[in-house]
């Protein structure tokens, strides 16, 4: 198995997103590419990543392989890459991950026993969909966070608003007013869902500007799915379970 990226931004974004949920990550490499799927320890959020072979400068995988890494250690190595540096990974016979950063930095990192289980994906319908720039979404989360720990998303016909309510006050952000930065709003059914900023904020910051656009899909009191559109990567899906009336 051998994979070489062109540039380091995508891998940094992926590792950073995963680091918001887990300390140890198991990746699966097949001839098709590299995948990761995992939940945070409290099973509130799930990340599903599929990175196709076509997105790599060089990719070779003769037989399926699982490899586990400590995310903080892997992240430290990846961060030594400049934006344009390629990162090449392969696995040695001694169960070490060989990481070549740029032209001349050759790291060896100990792999961990992979505790991978087959995590399914939530099976849910998505009634509503909002596409907007990731920087706009990041600002909205900041706007809501000053009064609340939770973001409420509400769609009605083809209108949407984000809101938050806390002890000190509340805020409503009407998306119709800044249509320039909103790509698309659609709803098959009026939907309202409330989601924890404790999980949303870190992942949106982690993927940051690497994702130009994001798509939020949800239904009333059902998980939110955010798709981050990162140029070279097939799929980064972040699922977040809702706050519900109990």
């Amino acid at each position: 198995f051998e994979a070489k990226t062109s540039g380091s931004d995508d891998l940094k974004a992926i590792i950073s997103a995963i680091s918001t949920l887990v300390e140890e990550a198991t990746f699966v490499a097949t001839a098709e590419g590299i995948t990761f799927r995992g939940m945070d320890p409290s099973h509130v959020a799930l990340i599903d990543i599929s990175w196709p072979n076509s997105a790599f400068e060089k990719y070779e995988c003769d037989s399926d392989i699982k490899f586990g890494v400590r995310i903080d250690e892997f992240s430290k190595l990846i961060k030594r890459a400049d934006k344009k540096d390629s990162i090449e990974i392969s696995i040695s016979e001694q169960n070490m991950l060989l990481v070549t950063v740029g032209k001349n930095k050759k790291y060896k990192m100990r792999l961990i026993e992979s505790s991978a289980t087959d995590t399914p994906l939530p099976k849910i319908p998505y009634d509503s969909k909002i596409t907007l720039s990731s920087s706009r979404f990041d600002k909205i989360l900041g706007d809501v966070q000053v009064v609340s720990d939770y973001l409420t998303i509400h769609t009605s016909d083809s209108k949407a608003d984000f809101s938050g309510k806390g002890d000190s006050g509340e805020v409503v952000i009407d998306l119709e007013k800044d249509i320039d930065e909103i790509g698309e709003i659609s709803s098959k059914e009026d939907s309202i869902g409330t989601y924890s900023l404790e999980y949303l904020n870190p992942v949106v910051k982690a993927v940051g500007t690497t994702a130009g656009q994001i798509t939020c899909e949800f239904s009333s009191a059902k998980p939110l799915r955010i798709e981050f559109k990162v140029a070279n990567i097939g799929r980064i899906h972040f699922y977040l379970a809702p706050r519900v009336e109990s």
């Binding site: 509130v44 399914p120 379970a241 706050r243 519900v244 009336e245 109990s246």
Partner: peptide, 11 residues
């Protein structure tokens, strides 16, 4: 009362 649900409830 509001509570945090688990993603596994939706598998």
């Amino acid at each position: 009362i509001r509570g945090q649900s688990s993603i596994t409830n939706y598998f």
